[in-house]
Amino acid sequence: MSATWYECKVKYRKTHETGEQKVSTDTYLLDAVSFTEAEARINEEMAAYTSEEFKIMNIKVANFSEIHPFENSDRWFKSKVSLIALDEESGKEKKTNIYMLVQANDVKEAFENTTQAMQNTMGDYTIPSITESPILDVFPYFSGDEEELDEIPNNEIAVLAEEEI
């Protein structure tokens, strides 16, 4: 099952590098099952992030099909990827656009990271655009079971998965 990603705009008082406090509206991304869960999760994440009062200004479903974090990168970029397929009936090329969120330090690195994320793709694709995203941080859902799986050898994970089916 794929995750549904929600963009959450949060307004709060933020201390800038100069030491002065200003009201800022920032965008965060998180995955959740519903708007209600997204609101609860952003409240939880922001409570840990700031001790100031904050207000959730907007929550909307984001159109990202994949999220790709990369180490040593501090900004998020929205990559538009056009998947190219041949329509067998008409014989024409058909493009399907998907959007990926890729972490990088600049547009050039975002292009390289998008290419790296697409390296196992069997079909043809193009990258028509990459733009910097207003998203400051991404909060993926962790159930807590991830740590337990790290301690189990890979061959046993497959056995555990088969037992649950």
Rank of each mutant, 00 (worst) to 15 (best):
L149R: 12
A40Y: 01
N113W: 10
P128L: 02
T114D: 07
S24G: 00
H68Q: 13
T50H: 09
R75V: 05
R41D: 00
L30E: 03
L86P: 02
C8H: 02
N154G: 13
L30H: 00
T96K: 12
M100E: 03
T25D: 05
Q119L: 10
V33P: 00
I67T: 05
K78W: 07
E53N: 03
A110H: 08
Q103Y: 09
R13F: 05
F64N: 02
I165K: 11
S51I: 06
M122H: 05
S51Q: 10
G144F: 09
T114G: 05
P128W: 08
T25M: 03
Y28V: 04
Q116A: 14
Y28W: 01
Q103W: 10
V10S: 08
N113I: 08
A40M: 06
M57F: 04
N58A: 12
N154Y: 14
E109G: 12
N154L: 14
S2I: 05
A161P: 05
G19Y: 11
N97E: 12
I84F: 03
G91S: 07
L160F: 09
N154K: 15
T18E: 12
E37Y: 06
I165R: 12
K9L: 10
I130N: 07
R75P: 00
V10H: 07
A104T: 07
F142N: 08
F77I: 04
D31V: 03
L136T: 09
G91P: 02
Y141R: 15
V81F: 03
F111Y: 15
Y6E: 01
V61E: 13
V81N: 09
V102K: 00
E37N: 05
D150H: 15
I84V: 13
A110Q: 08
Q116W: 11
E53P: 03
M118T: 04
A104P: 01
V33F: 09
Q119F: 11
P153E: 14
P128C: 02
D106K: 04
D137M: 09
R13E: 12
N58P: 02
K94I: 13
V33A: 03
I59W: 04
T115V: 10
E20W: 07
L29I: 05
S65D: 10
S34A: 01
K80V: 14
I130D: 06
P128D: 06
R41H: 00
M1I: 08
M122R: 10
E89W: 04
I130M: 06
Y125S: 00
N120Q: 14
